[in-house]
Simulated assay, not measured.
Amino acid sequence: MKNYGIAAVMRRELEKVLSKDLTAEQTKILDQAENLFKQVYQTGFNEARLIGGEEWSNNACLGYAILGARKMRYSEEQTKKLIRSMYSQFDLTSVGEAIEVYNKSSY
């Protein structure tokens, strides 16, 4: 997967901040920063693939929740409430924040 779009967006934003008349040195620094962002992204992506071995997604997370709810014999309505509550958190909470919440919990 080579989705480096965020590096390009960040570069464009930096170019706006620095002005349109960039010096050769400033352009070189932006090129280096963009390449570093790409390397960081690729490294993180590769590590995630090695650790997990499978693609992770919000749907996978919700599937685990459904499986856990079934094991706990939650009713259909309880499971729906759980899934809706979790789904709404995807937009409000970053993956890092969710990991931190879990790591600090007693579970």
Score class of each variant (00 low, 15 high):
L30M: 01
M1R: 15
Y102Q: 07
K2L: 05
D31T: 05
K80I: 09
S105Y: 06
S75G: 02
V9T: 14
K104L: 13
Q32V: 09
L82C: 03
Q78N: 08
S75I: 04
G52L: 14
R11C: 04
V9I: 14
E13G: 03
I99D: 06
L30G: 02
T93W: 06
A24V: 07
N59P: 03
K104I: 02
T93I: 14
T93N: 09
Q39G: 00
E13R: 10
S94W: 06
A69S: 05
V101G: 03
N46Q: 13
D21I: 00
L30N: 02
A33L: 15
K28Y: 09
R12C: 05
M10W: 12
F37Q: 03
L82W: 01
K71M: 09
I83G: 01
N59E: 15
A65H: 07
K38Q: 08
I99F: 10
Y87G: 07
T23E: 03
V17M: 11
N35I: 04
Q42C: 00
L14G: 01
F90W: 01
T23L: 03
L18M: 09
K20A: 12
M10P: 00
A60M: 05
S94P: 03
G53P: 01
G53L: 02
I29W: 00
A69H: 05
Y64K: 10
T43S: 14
F90V: 05
G44L: 07
G96Q: 10
K16S: 14
E13N: 11
G5T: 09
A8Y: 14
N3I: 12
Y4W: 09
S85Q: 11
T93S: 11
L62W: 01
A48F: 07
R84F: 07
V101L: 13
F45A: 11
I66C: 01
L30V: 02
T27V: 12
M86I: 14
I29L: 12
I51A: 06
N58F: 03
V40L: 10
E47T: 13
E25I: 04
V9A: 12
T23P: 02
E76N: 07
G52T: 06
S85H: 13
I66T: 09
D31H: 07
Y74A: 13
F90I: 03
E13V: 05
E54K: 12
G52V: 10
T43W: 08
T43H: 10
T23D: 03
G63C: 06
Y41Q: 10
V40H: 01
Y4H: 10
R70M: 10
